[in-house]
Amino acid sequence: MNEEQLVGRARSGDIEAFEALVSEYDGRIYNMAYRMLGNPEDARDVTQDAFLKAYSSIGGFRGDASFSTWLYRIAKNVCLDVLRRRSRRTVFSLDDPMETEEGELDRQLAGELPDPEDALLDSEVRDAVKDAILRLPPHHRSIIVLRDIEDLSYEEIAEILEIGLGTVKSRLYRARSALSANLASLELFHHRGVGPGERREGQ
């Protein structure tokens, strides 16, 4: 049975069909949630929540987008809800200078990142990359995760985030630049001479 048929059956209340869809996508949704939120507990909750929401609202799914896009959108919203709830605990400081000002990004981009193959993504580096993602603001984090972790096309991303293709392009560029700045400022790479101290010099 193909996906369309499964979705059709699920819409008419066939639990087994829906469960087949769950088995198809739970890994991807979990992975996305994990990268968005940074810990297995939240990822688990989000996955469960997203599928339950999908189940109870599948009647409203009209097939304008693909099922996976629709599911990702739900999951993204659940993730953002979690982030928002978290933000109530850790308050943003509005007066902090922006970390991602244009000039700083450009300077950063001109700097050197170590060769990923040299660094051989060992667990330390993986943790560092993970942290670097988690330091991005939500709108950057979600686009990076959808593109570079979940490997979705620009078009799919546009539908999931409900933004235009042009915005996908520019936001992704900014997100990657910010991430590259985050990576470069990590302890790990200090010996390469791109520590945060140097970045602040020009301000």
Binding site: D26, G27, Y30, N31, Y34, R35, P40, A43, R44, T47, Q108, L109, A110, G111, E112, L113, P114, D115, P116, E117, L121, V125, R126, V129, K130, I133, I144, D148, I149, Y173, R176, S177, L179, S180, L183
Partner: peptide
């Protein structure tokens, strides 16, 4: 080059599988 490396770092992350 910097963007490319950034992307490679991301690609190097393992896919987390659900419990």
């Amino acid at each position: 080059e910097s963007l490319r490396r950034t992307r490679e770092f991301l690609a190097g992350l393992p896919s987390e599988s659900p419990p």
